[in-house]
């Protein structure tokens, strides 16, 4: 599914990722934890193709294909999805218009049958209910005036609509109350299947109570310094990061 080898990347001459390697197999859920400034969000940006994030070494393949030369939209069409930590507000562009453009483009690229407006609307309403968003939000501007929790749920809703093969969730749990956390986790769990993989970037073990990972990695200073099973998250919660970083 996803293969990252010795990935090094910099932003404005500052090297953030310093040789990160990671293998994610189809259907797996990987959690990436780590202290502030360790490069967690940068990893999401680099994988999704944000401008200004320059890869200086290493390789990333998605389903066997090198994606590093691709524009962000091309990666999305190939099945990569990034749920933002801070989703952007776009007044004037309605959620509906945005989502339709997005779903149409991605489905068309993937050779899936196009959704007519009626079936699209029906699906969009269903999905928004599943993440506990009032379907009327579809008429409003993208994330416009949304609370933090609504924005995160909207990200999950988009993920459900786009049916990606690799989902990267960048601190989707931050700023969520317990109920919203449950909704997000339910959304992710509903999307799980043997062909879809997840990378869940988080600060806290809490989300992993709801979304049980296959593997947990600790990212520190741009590298993965420890990997383990789900129990590693509990250990981190208890002891913090310093015991690994020192080791």
């Amino acid at each position: 599914m996803l293969s990252i080898k010795n990935l090094q990347a910099k932003v404005e001459d500052k090297t953030i990722l310093k040789g990160l390697s990671l293998e994610v197999k189809p259907g797996e859920i990987h959690a990436i934890m780590g202290p502030n400034g360790s490069g967690k969000s940068t990893l999401g940006y680099v994988l999704s193709g944000r401008e200004g994030y320059e890869v200086t070494a290493g390789s990333v393949t998605l389903n066997g294909e090198d994606i590093l030369e691709l524009e962000a939209d091309e990666r999305a069409k190939k099945g990569l999805f990034l749920a933002f930590q801070y989703p952007v507000e776009i007044p004037g562009v309605s959620n509906m218009e945005f989502l339709k453009a997005s779903v149409d483009t991605v489905r068309d690229y993937q050779g899936k049958e196009a959704l007519d407006t009626v079936s699209f609307m029906k699906l969009a309403r269903e999905r928004s209910k599943e993440v506990n968003l009032d379907p009327n939000f579809l008429k409003r501007g993208v994330n416009e005036g949304f609370s933090g929790g609504e924005k995160k749920r909207n990200e999950i809703m988009q993920m459900m609509m786009l049916e990606p093969s690799l989902c990267i969730l960048d601190e989707t749990d931050s700023g969520l109350d317990i109920d919203a956390l449950q909704v997000v986790a339910d959304g992710v769990n509903a999307c799980r299947d043997e062909n879809r993989s997840f990378i869940i970037v988080t600060h806290y073990q809490r989300l992993l109570d709801y979304i049980v990972p296959d593997k947990v990695h600790v990212l520190s200073d741009g590298k993965i310094i420890k990997s383990g099973g789900k129990e590693l998250a509990l250990e981190l919660e208890e002891k913090g990061y310093s015991w690994i970083e020192k080791a």
Partner: peptide, 21 residues
């Protein structure tokens, strides 16, 4: 960038954002 991560190419994203404005 946000629109691009949803599969919408840069040119179209710029148009959508301008029209939205």
């Amino acid at each position: 960038y946000y629109l691009q991560t949803r599969g919408i190419d840069k040119t179209r994203a710029k148009k959508m954002l301008s029209i939205g404005f």
